[in-house]
Write a protein that binds this DNA or RNA. Structure first.
Lengths: 189, 189, 189, 189
DNA sequence: GATGAATGAGAATTCATTCAT
DNA sequence: AATGAATGAATTCTCATTCAT
C-alpha cells in the first residue's frame, strides 16, 4: 500500500507534466491522489515546495547514478556509451518523472547548489578530459557539452511530442554512436 | 511610435520567458507595456490567446525562413551549415522571442496544423534526402533529426542558463561542424 | 432617416427588454444602433440615464393618453372599457417599448413625481368615484385598483411569456368585460 | 445554527429583490451572509446558478403546494378561494422569497420544464374544468387565467410598491371574492 | 457631430492555505 | 494522521466612460 506522501508525489508529477506546475491545482492533485487537499500540507509546506522537492530528489538520484557510471575506469568511448545507455534507461524507468525533470530544469536548476554534481557537470568533465587527452577535438567544451546533452535530451522530448514512441532504450546504440561521432576525433564506427 | 498591440506583445513575451505564461499576470503585462490592463483585451480575447498567437506567428515566420534556406540548390553540407547559421542568427535577432519559442513549444506545438511546415519537418526532409543519396548514414531519420535539432537548441538553452554568453552566432562554425559530423558519412573537416 | 438619438433609444430598449438594463452593455447598444459607443454619451449622460429617460418619456405619454380617455364624460362602464381598449392598443402600437415599461416599473416608478399623473392614479380615481356613486362595491380601492391593473397587465405579460400571441387588442372585449365584472356591482353582460 | 449554504441563499435573495440579480455583487452577498466570497462557489458554480437555483426550488415548492390544494374535492368557488388564500399566505410566509419569485419569473420561467407543474397550469386546469361544467363563462382560458393570476399577483406587487402594507392575507376575502366574480357565471355574493 | 481606442475601477471567479473536527 | 469546509487575496476579464482625432 502506497503511503499518502507517495500518492501525492505520484499524482502531482503526473499533473505537473500534463499542465505545468502553475496550472495544476492542489485540488486536482488531491483528487488524483485520492487524499484530502489538506493532507498535502502535512508533507509539504506549499505546492511550490512539493514541485521543488520532486525535482531536487530526482535530480540528485540522476546525478549520482550518472556520476557513478562516469567514474568507471573505461575508455572514453565506453564512458560516453554507458552514459547514454543509462540516461535513456533512466528515462524509461520512470518516464513521467523524467519528463517532469526535463520541464522543470529551466525553473529549478539554478536552485541546485552549484558545488554539487549535475549531469551537465559530469559531461563537461569527460569532455575536458577528452580534449586534454586529444581524444576530443579542441572546441569550446561548453558548446560541445551543450550539443551532446541536447542531442540526447531531444530524443526524449520528441517522445513527449509523440514523434517517437516505445521505450527510448531501443535507440541507445544509434544515439551513443551519433554522440561519439560528434565528440571523438577518430571515427571507428 | 510602437502600437499598443506591439507594446503588449513585447511586454508579454518578456514576462512569459522570465516566469512562464501561467505565472505572468495581466497586471504585470500591462504595467511593463505601459498600457491599461483592459487594453490587452481589445487585441486578444484572453491571456491564453495572447500567448498562443505570439507562438503561432513566430513559428510561421521561423518555418518560412528556414524552408527558404533549405530550398537553395547547394550541397547538403552547405544546406546544413546555412540552416545552423540562420537558426542561430534568428535566435540572436530576437533573443527574447526565440527563448519564448523554445519554452512554448511543448505547450503549443500540437496546435500547429500538422500539414503546415515546421522547422522540424525541414530537417527531416534534408535527412531523408541525405540518406537516399547515401550522404547520411542509414539511421532512423526521426532519431537523427531529433538529435540534430536538440544539439542546436541546447546551445540556445545553455545561453538561457547563462552557461554561454554573448551572441550565439559566434558559435555558428563550431555548431555546424559538429552537426555535419553527426550526420554526414564522410568527414571532411 | 432616423436620428442618432432615436437609433440609440430603439436599440437600447430592444436590448433592455431582452436582457435587462444591467446586463446590456453600451457596446451592444452601439452595435445594434450602428453608431459609435461614444455617441451614446452625446445624448445621454450615462447608460442609467438612458434607461431612465426612456421609461420616463413613455410613462408620461402613457399617463397623458389614459388621463385624456378617463376625462371623457361617459358612463363608468364605458370609461373602463375605453381604458382597457386604449391600454391594449398602446401595447400593440409599440410592443417593445411597452414591455420595457412593464419591466422597468419596479425600478423607476418611485422616481416618478408622486404629484404627477400615473396610470395607476387614473384607475384609483375612477374606482373611488365609482364607490362614491355606489356603482362599485365598497372594497379597499387600493386592492381593487391593483387587481384591475394586474389583470390587464398580466395579459400583456403572458404575451411576453408566449402563452398568448398576436395583437393584444383582439382581446379587448373579453378583457374589458372581465374587468367590469370585477368592479361593477350590477352585472349587465 | 444556519448552514453556510442557507446564509448565502438568504442574503442573495434579499439583495436580488432590492437590486436585481445583475446589479448584486458576490461581494455584497458574502458580506450580508457573513461568509467569505469564495464560499459562495463551494455551493453554487456561479452567481447566475445561485439565482436560478433559488428560483427553481421555490417554484417547485410553490407549484406542489398549490397543486395539492387544487386537488381537494370541493366546489370550484372553494377551490378558487383556497388557492387565493394559500397563495397570499405563501407570500406572507416568506415575503422576500416570494418577491424574488415574482421578479425572476420573466427571466427563468422558460427554463422550467414545461412538462412539470406550474402555478399557472393549476389555474388553467381549474378554468378549463369550470368552463366544461358551465360554471365559468366560455372565454379564452388563457386570457382568463392570465387575468386571474395577474389580479392576485398585482396585489403582491403593490405591496412591493408600498401602496399596500401589512400582511397580504388580511385581504384574502376581498381578493378571492373579486376573483370569483371575474370567473364564475353565477354571482352569489 | 461622430468615432473608436484607451482607460481603470470593479466584477466574478479561482485556489493555495488554514484549521476545527 | 486525515479530512474538507472555509477563507480571502489575487487573478482574469468586463464595461461604462472619456477624449483625441
Amino acid at each position: 500500500m502506497e503511503s499518502t506522501r507517495d500518492k501525492i508525489i505520484q499524482a502531482a508529477v503526473t499533473l505537473f507534466v500534463q499542465q505545468g506546475v502553475a496550472s495544476t491545482t492542489t485540488r486536482e492533485i488531491a483528487a488524483l491522489a485520492k487524499v484530502a487537499e489538506g493532507s498535502i500540507y502535512r508533507y509539504f509546506s506549499s505546492k511550490e515546495e512539493l514541485a521543488w522537492q520532486i525535482f531536487r530528489d530526482y535530480h540528485h538520484q540522476l546525478a549520482a547514478t550518472l556520476q557513478e557510471i562516469a567514474e568507471q575506469p573505461v575508455s572514453i568511448r565506453e564512458q560516453i556509451t554507458n552514459l547514454v545507455v543509462s540516461f535513456l534507461q533512466l528515462a524509461d524507468d520512470d518516464w513521467v518523472l523524467f519528463q517532469y525533470y526535463l520541464i522543470a530544469q529551466q525553473k529549478y536548476m539554478h536552485k541546485i547548489d552549484a558545488n554539487l554534481l549535475t549531469p551537465y557537470q559530469v559531461i563537461i568533465d569527460i569532455i575536458e578530459q577528452g580534449i586534454k587527452q586529444r581524444l576530443i577535438r579542441s572546441n569550446d567544451p561548453q558548446i560541445l557539452a551543450a550539443m551532446a546533452m541536447g542531442a540526447v535530451n531531444q530524443v526524449a522530448i520528441n517522445k513527449q511530442f509523440k514523434r517517437i514512441d516505445g521505450p527510448l532504450s531501443v535507440h541507445s546504440k544509434t544515439v551513443s554512436n551519433v554522440i561519439c561521432r560528434m565528440l571523438l576525433s577518430e571515427n571507428m564506427d
